[in-house]
């Protein structure tokens, strides 16, 4: 420490004064001896005073150092905790990625930031649920998607192409998910997932880091964010409980079918068959209230009553 050498120099200086005073003592009278002794004493006091001041400074310095050490100790403990929880999730790679760290898997894929991935995932939520209590909606739930064979999640009706890709051996791993998210129809040409794709590589690595958290052992799936399973629009239970008149729905649906294909194929315009009725109702109300942006759909929905929306939902849900 810099102050130590300063202190040492001061002590030497004090000692030299004492020696000098002793050397001149025999050549002087008592008064001058007394003066010398007093001067000496003063010097000693001064030296001691300086010494004390140095020590006070030193103490403050040490306290600062201690608090610095405490901070780094806390950070180290936190890192250990994070590493422990990451290690609790079985991972294909031997070392589990830390949430905030970009880690490459064996193929060189860079996992991104899962909390940013959660934000990117917001656009997926109208069709896919994830987290505790997630269930199949317009799309299958995505818990445990890593390692799952494509089109093989029990109880969900996939497009023929997706089912075929699965039986041909497509499995959802980092590389395949990355390719699918970049351009769904390039990988599975007639998938019913109507999504143009995430063109930004960072978006994909972030969202995959997020999804990855839900592919751990099932008992360790994190709680999804509170907003995850919330509806896009706030609808009263009465509106959701309306049982649609499928005959009326069939007539109303004739207007939809000018664009949306009855056989569920989609090319530029999404498939709307076999949706859970609640999702259909929520989506139409979201257009009606102009929460969803598409101008044609806003126009179509704007003049549909709650009963008419329920009728359409009931009709399209039962189409084969």
């Amino acid at each position: 420490m810099a102050n130590n050498s300063g202190l040492f120099v001061s002590v030497l200086g004090g000692a030299a004064l004492v020696l000098g005073a002793a050397y001149g003592w025999t050549a002087r009278d008592f008064r001058s001896q007394e003066l010398v002794a007093l001067t000496d004493r003063l010097s000693q006091l001064e030296a001691s005073n300086t010494d004390l001041a140095e020590r006070v400074e030193q103490k403050a310095d040490l306290e600062e150092k201690i608090s610095e050490l405490e901070v780094s100790l806390a950070a180290a403990l936190e890192a250990v905790e994070a590493a422990k929880s990451a290690a609790a999730a079985p991972a294909p790679a031997p070392a589990a990625p830390e949430p905030d760290t970009i880690v490459a898997d064996a193929s060189g894929f860079q996992f991104g930031d899962p909390s940013r991935g959660e934000e990117v995932f917001a656009q997926c939520r109208s069709c896919h649920q994830i987290g505790q209590g997630a269930s199949d909606r317009i799309g299958p739930h995505l818990n445990g998607i890593f390692g799952r064979r494509a089109g093989a999640h029990d109880g969900f009706r996939y497009s023929d192409d997706m089912a075929m890709m699965g039986s041909d051996g497509l499995t959802w791993e980092i590389e395949t998910l990355n390719a699918y998210l970049e351009n769904p129809k390039a990988l599975v040409s007639r998938t019913r997932m109507n999504f143009a794709g995430l063109k930004d590589a960072q978006d994909r690595s972030d969202i995959l880091a997020y999804l990855r958290q839900f592919s751990a052992s099932p008992q360790n799936i994190p709680e999804a964010a509170p907003t995850a399973q919330a509806r896009e629009v706030d609808l009263s239970p009465e509106v959701l409980a309306i049982v649609g008149d499928t005959d009326y729905g069939e007539y109303l649906a004739s207007e939809c079918k000018t664009c949306h294909q009855q056989d569920g194929s989609d090319q530029g315009i999404p498939s709307i068959i076999q949706w859970p009725t609640e999702d259909f109702v929520v989506a139409m109300h979201a257009y009606k209230r102009q929460i969803r942006p598409h101008p044609v759909m806003q126009m179509m929905a704007s003049r549909l009553s709650d009963e008419e929306i329920a009728a359409l939902a009931a009709y399209f849900a039962q189409l084969e």
Partner: peptide
């Protein structure tokens, strides 16, 4: 581009209809 792609979907839809 999305609007153009939508028109292709519409063409398929209306001609099937």
């Amino acid at each position: 581009k999305a609007t153009y792609e939508e028109s292709i979907g519409w063409y398929e839809g209306i001609t099937t209809d």
